[in-house]
Design a protein around this nucleic acid. Sequence first.
DNA 1: AGTCAAGAAATTGTCGACAAAAAAGTTTAT
DNA 2: ATAAACTTTTTTGTCGACAATTTCTTGACT
Lengths: 261, 261
Amino acid sequence: MKTRHSFQDSSPGSGGIAREEKVVRLATERRTRAGAGADAEAIYQRILAAIIEHRLAPGRKLVEERLAAVFGASRAMIRQVLTRLSHEMVVTLIPNRGAFVAEPTVEEAREVFEARRLIEPALARKLALSATPAQLARLRRLVVAEEKARADRDRQQVIRLSGEFHLEIAEMAGNAILARQMRELTLLTCLIIILYDSPLGRACPDDEHRQLLDAFAQRDQQRAAALMLHHLDHVEHSLDISLAAQEDDDLERIFSPISPL
Amino acid sequence: MKTRHSFQDSSPGSGGIAREEKVVRLATERRTRAGAGADAEAIYQRILAAIIEHRLAPGRKLVEERLAAVFGASRAMIRQVLTRLSHEMVVTLIPNRGAFVAEPTVEEAREVFEARRLIEPALARKLALSATPAQLARLRRLVVAEEKARADRDRQQVIRLSGEFHLEIAEMAGNAILARQMRELTLLTCLIIILYDSPLGRACPDDEHRQLLDAFAQRDQQRAAALMLHHLDHVEHSLDISLAAQEDDDLERIFSPISPL
DNA sequence: AGTCAAGAAATTGTCGACAAAAAAGTTTAT
DNA sequence: ATAAACTTTTTTGTCGACAATTTCTTGACT
């Protein structure tokens, strides 16, 4: 019983439907007005999608009653969804203040990439050994979709599809625990890229995903692991983190006696 | 602002109090009767402690109203705590059926150890480089406590303290994201040991923690990483998992045409 | 004008009540 | 006596109402 996950499909409920369709569905209003169905899972999916696709920017406040109205659900239901999102670190819950789309700090960003460097090369190595033709085909579809999005200059979709590519690898590697952790890490990475991607340079490098795919196809474990590691370094260094572009928040540092730069 | 965590202290709220004391507090009834204070955090701590210390066995059903009565809290509050525990995989939440103390499968157990083998040697390596005398002292205290518990044949405490030792290392290594993930993994490991530890052989090997500590003290990165890896292998192989001692549940396999053994 | 304080509005936190579902117990028919 | 169907009890899921807190607005004072 192999489950098929994605950002939008990680918990119990509806099984495998093609990815693209699902995203369209998420962007489309299905129910009567603005989605009058009160299903926690569906609401979770839609809020998560909105965050991943940057329609809800990091730092954005999520007012419970407002969301309840939008989804035609009770506040209790919204609350449930928000706590789940907060456990997944996509949303920050501040007591008596409310819920906010998470804003990973540069420090957290570094930590996320450090974690990924430990985990993902090993997953790539595993998958290189075990990948079935069907799995390779699935990955190929994701890469193609990503390349298309890049050609269309659809930055949001590139980020999302890139994340799904990595997540798919994690899930194919056959360790549900690690896949779960990788899901958190890739979600965070999406937020990090939104926050810190340098305006000009797009963070998701050209054809590295395709190279990785080739390594899987050739069952080249060493190369797969090495490519993954290199890829992660590449992504991290394409961000403004390297030079410590800090938040607006740390006024203390900005106005500290000695200039930070 | 370095936070000091432990199994019982991982979220906002009360800062650093000595470990031993805290555990005693957890075992002791503080309030009027059976703890009439309705504080979500406190309730979380106590239920978690009960699970870690095996007073609530894996598979045990957790009835909301019962817990509410015990803690003098509302059902809503209990519900909140249970969902948190379920997100941390310590509790399994089955819709319309209720909450149960998690029972990791052998497959999950293997996955947990695989994940730990990826992460923990790297953390050990990091800490070997950066450990301060204060940190070493703290670890030493944990090791001593664990050795004492072992001398007293207090299996529960050995398991708990062993887990805290690993968690402490993760938190000292300076990566909050990884520390968070390690917390989940060590909690799961506690459940796994409770479930699968072979009756005679105690799962937490003799002096490996102390050796690890020595490696930290000597700043021997290579040795620290190698010891950690070996230690994890040792713990895993001391369990009945290796020989696939399955659950009671899989009657299908037990009564399958060909005997499983 | 600017700052502080009090009041008003908006928002979150908590609870108890009711509805829906599952589990346990009882009756009835074969 | 066993098994199915029905009833009762227990337990979970959901909601709206109220209390507590924060945030915004207004107005007085320097």
